[in-house]
Design a binder for these strands. Structure first.
Lengths: 185, 185
DNA sequence: TAATTTGTTCATTCTAATTTGAACATATTG
DNA sequence: CAATATGTTCAAATTAGAATGAACAAATTA
């Protein structure tokens, strides 16, 4: 019951526009459109296309799907599917579901905005803030050196101002992330 | 007076780590560090490295710089510099400055967070929201078709819910952008 | 007007990142 | 245990996107 055969797809007719050889209507128009939307979306976030495809298909699927169905329906490699699912699990964008009497792992999309945003912020954004913070310390030292070595008082002021600015930006970013989280929650 | 010769750089010693052939100390350690910071930053926003380099150098330069100095100091091609400056102007991240008695165009970084954020939102994010909005309409139709064609009432409910969710997400995004703008302003 | 300077454009080249697929590991079944 | 099913890993192929540089246009100077 769980892994519904691909021929039993609901209404939607052929998908996948003309072009290559053996088109077999693996995806309905609705699925195609949703997937495309997510592919666009994740690209904006710097996440690879295949990950968007996987999430998109899971998002619009009524039942959880196993890896090999993602492979056959999306026509992506096993490797991509495996790695894509891992990223999505790490992001908290996909959860694995127990399906009775099935040996394969089944996955479904986490379709609530909050955990998605949180996962993305925690995994993709916060690490950068962290390393950025360290970098800023070194930067401050370099600016001081420059200010001292230069002899020129104007120069010192300028460099200190620039580094101070970067500090403020970082502070803003640190405040902003939780704010976004709360807003989407 | 304006296009200070590159040998007249302030304190900082050799930059550019070991490796390739003719290293010539075109960038001080401070400049190098700032540039690296911006290169990391823009990568996060899906903006090419060369653009980060250009903005970084302008940001930490006391005087406006002309295109050919960006080329020589950053060792990037004229093409990259030209295109990079254009993107930065479009983003509102760089402004051109009049320098008396100079034929070349000189540029300086816009170093206030607000216009930077606004430019990025307006140029990079809002266009996607726009096309996403159109896509959503088509999606809604497809979901209705699917719901009708499927015969299954459950299915209809599910697809409508999913599309409705996407609508809500888009709405949130539309609210969020101005909020971010205000916060950074 | 010819020569020079400055900047842009865009086809080609190069690079970084993604995708593939075969080899491998780990159950699971007969 | 051998055979099969499932999933992961990683070197190699592919692809998308960025950088290059030569050709061009426009402005300036001599």
């Amino acid at each position: 019951m769980a892994s519904r055969p691909i021929s039993a797809e609901p209404g939607g007719a052929v998908g996948v526009e003309a072009g290559a050889s053996g088109e077999e209507a693996l995806l309905s128009d609705l699925e195609l459109e949703v997937i495309e939307m997510f592919v666009n979306g994740v690209k904006l976030l710097g996440i690879p296309k295949s990950v968007g495809e996987i999430y998109g298909l899971l998002f619009i699927s009524r039942e959880p799907l196993p890896l090999d169905e993602l492979v056959s329906r999306l026509k992506i490699s096993k490797g991509s599917a495996s790695q894509g699912l891992r990223s999505l699990r790490n992001l908290g964008a996909v959860r694995s579901v127990y399906v009775a009497g099935e040996r394969r792992d089944f996955y479904e999309a986490v379709a609530e905005l909050k955990p998605l945003a949180s996962g993305f912020i925690k995994e993709q954004l916060e690490p950068h803030l962290e390393t950025g913070g360290q970098r800023l310390e070194r930067l401050k030292e370099l600016a001081e050196e420059e200010a001292r070595a230069g002899g020129d008082a104007e120069a010192g002021k300028f460099y200190r101002d620039r580094v101070e600015r970067l500090r403020k930006w970082e502070g803003k970013a640190r405040q902003l992330l939780p704010l976004i989280r709360r807003f989407l929650g």
